[in-house]
Design a protein around this nucleic acid. Structure first.
Length: 583
RNA sequence: CGGGGAGUAGCGCAGUCUGGUAGCGCAUCGGUUUUGGGAACCGAGGGCCGCAGGUUCGAAUCCUGUCUCCCCGACCA
């Protein structure tokens, strides 16, 4: 293709509202154009990249028996009521909704478990039709609380969503593993350094789930990694070994109650009682678990030097969402100002749970629901009833990992894929059954598998860019090689450039001929910003000694080659790069 | 939704405090000269100063309301 015929629009300034690299570069290079918050035009050049990513996804999923379908984006409320997810998505307000002329309410697909389960239920009646893996590459909608970072978090995005249906758990395990391996290959072929981590299943639900992360400083997720132990987990899910407190198992001392005027936080308490370390304190975190039709206040007892993990807590409560209590609610429910809640004399309105870190503590310091007072040398079981215990702590970098005890390190990551073992969550709820070998109805055993296609493109930019601009992997670059003639008025050089371009195209390369009448510097800057993996430069040298330059955008290397060797060399390079990305 | 910031030409910004004919750089269009690292000169076009109301002889500027966008938190591919 000739660059002069393409809609290429680049800018010299970053857009003022861009924060992260991929947003800045994609906007400057004209790949995206914002229409409103979280809504972007994908320009023609980006469309080529998205098409290539989609094609890699198709090849790999077809390779494990996936079949492509298209599912409706408009999904009626009644269908979501049957799975029980409508109130969940209403509570988190994740789903955009709309009404038709009959005032029937529809959700705009954030994901499609209900629709695909309905479809498979209606069309799949026998175990002989299983296993079945269906996927689509389609627009998804999420009413994000805060869209940001360019294509990273948007209201409308392209997702590949796949769903597997098996007769039993063993089948699901096999399917899940096949998808996991396909995902590894997909991200590798897209030129991304991605790795799998243990993850929370969130609103999708199910028994097991793994996220695929691209390491990048701009990533919104924190991942804890136990080196040498094959353990990596999203901080939402990560565990660590607890470092014991000095007070664990101490011989109980008599209870004391001290006046602590206006001393509310662990920090303030440490200043007030310098002899009591934070890990001898128990804080009482008050949260409201929210359902569609009710709310239940929860009190969480947590060792003073630890933090509550809200995802773990939400899962423990079974609520659809969590929120902080208002100051007014705290006073009404505990009888004390905020900052003085504690397990002693706590209202029975609260459901109470303690983190495992509290289990062995004795002689601890905590609140007793009286303003401006705290209790010391408190002993669980003696001074307040033993609560149930659960693992609710947020694991932190530096703590010993759960496998070998090697210290956890933290990395930032962008979530590009997520796979889930759903089991029978949806099929059982929606009555989606097949007939098994014994002639009995059984719910499908399901898995679901997502890849953020547009996010993959942004991640590639995020992970591989340099100060000059984007560096696309060969496999997903809009064009693999650009031929740039720096003397756009020299007929001889024009002919040379066109000849090279045609030969490269005839060799099956995805080549671009940059025939735009730009000054040499401007043209080179532009091609570097746009991120084509290889650039062939024709100019003065071509005229004087019959050489051309071959530039490798990834390495920054420039080679000078005789004109006669150029086509063969570039073709070999591109083909090698394509192969290098194959597993 | 809570807290902080911003809306002036396609993009990046100044002007607002202290009211008085709307500016700069880049981009765009025409012309001449250029052509290996974001060229030079000459000329041109482009604005409801986010929107609505108010104060004033006069509002980008002051006041009120409202919408939008960005940043920090909860959500997720």
């Amino acid at each position: 293709m000739r660059a002069s015929q393409l809609h290429i629009v680049t800018y010299r300034n970053d857009p003022a509202d861009a924060e992260v690299t991929s947003h800045k570069l994609m906007a400057r290079a004209g790949y995206i154009h914002k229409i409103s918050a979280g809504l972007y035009v994908y320009a023609p050049m980006l469309q080529r990249t998205l098409r290539k990513i989609s094609e890699i996804v198709r090849q790999e999923l077809d390779g494990i028996g996936g079949q492509e379908v298209t599912l409706p984006i408009l999904q009626e409320q009644a269908l979501w009521e049957r799975s029980g997810r409508w109130p969940v998505y209403m509570a988190s307000r994740t789903m955009l909704t709309t009404k038709d002329r009959k005032e029937a309410t529809y959700g705009l697909a954030p994901t499609a478990e209900e629709v695909v389960t309905e479809y498979v239920s209606a069309t799949t009646k026998s175990y002989k039709q299983l296993p079945l893996s269906l996927y689509q590459i389609n627009t998804k909608f999420r009413d994000e609380l805060r869209p940001r970072f360019g294509l990273m978090r948007v209201k409308e995005f392209i997702m590949k969503d796949a769903y597997s249906f098996d007769a039993d758990e063993a089948g699901l395990d096999a399917r899940y593993e096949a998808f996991r391996q396909a995902y590894v290959r997909i991200f590798q072929r897209c030129g991304l350094e991605a790795f799998g981590v243990d993850a929370d299943a969130g609103d999708i639900g199910g028994s097991g789930s793994m996220e695929f992360m691209v390491a990048a400083d701009a990533g919104e997720d924190a991942i804890l990694i136990e080196e040498g132990a094959d353990y990596a987990a999203n901080v939402e899910k990560a565990q660590s070994r607890l470092v014991p407190s000095a007070c664990d198992g101490e011989a109980p001392r008599p209870l004391r109650i001290e006046a602590t005027p206006a001393v509310k936080t662990v920090e303030q308490l440490q200043a007030f009682f310098p002899e009591v370390a934070a890990d001898r304190m128990v804080k009482t975190v008050l949260m409201m678990a929210v359902w569609a039709d009710r709310e239940v206040p929860w009190a969480v007892l947590m060792r003073g030097d630890q933090e509550v993990n809200e995802v773990k807590l939400k899962n423990h409560t079974g609520g659809l969402a969590l929120r902080m209590l208002t100051d007014h609610e705290i006073v009404a429910l505990t009888g004390a100002e905020p900052g003085f809640a504690g397990p002693i004399g706590l209202s029975s309105a609260f459901s109470i749970v303690a983190d495992e870190s509290v289990r062995a503590m004795n002689n601890l310091l905590c609140g007793l629901n009286q303003t401006d007072k705290h209790a010391l040398d408190v002993n669980p079981g003696r001074d307040f009833p033993l609560p149930t215990f659960a693992e609710l702590r947020t694991a932190r970098a530096g703590e010993p990992g759960p496998r070998t005890g090697a210290p956890l390190i933290v990395k930032r990551g962008i979530e590009v894929g997520h796979i889930f073992k759903l089991g029978t969550k949806y099929s059982a709820a929606m009555g989606a059954v097949f007939t098994d070998e014994g002639g009995r109805p059984k719910p499908f055993v399901m898995g679901c598998y997502g890849i953020g296609v547009s996010r993959v493109a942004a991640s590639a930019v995020e992970q591989r860019s340099d100060s000059l601009g984007i560096r696309w992997p060969v496999s997903i670059a809009p064009y693999e090689v650009a031929v740039a003639n720096l003397s756009p008025k020299d007929d001889e050089l024009i002919a040379t450039a066109e000849g090279l371009y045609t030969s490269l195209k005839n060799n099956g390369l995805d080549a671009l001929y940059d025939d735009r009448a730009l000054a040499a510097g401007a043209k080179m800057k532009d091609l570097e910003l746009l991120g084509f993996p290889f650039v062939v430069v024709i100019g003065r040298g071509t005229k004087t000694d019959g050489t051309v330059e071959l530039r490798d955008r990834a390495s920054g290397a420039t080679e000078t080659l005789p004109l006669s060797a150029l086509v063969e060399t570039v073709t070999a390079r591109v083909l090698a790069a394509r192969r290098g990305l194959l597993p």
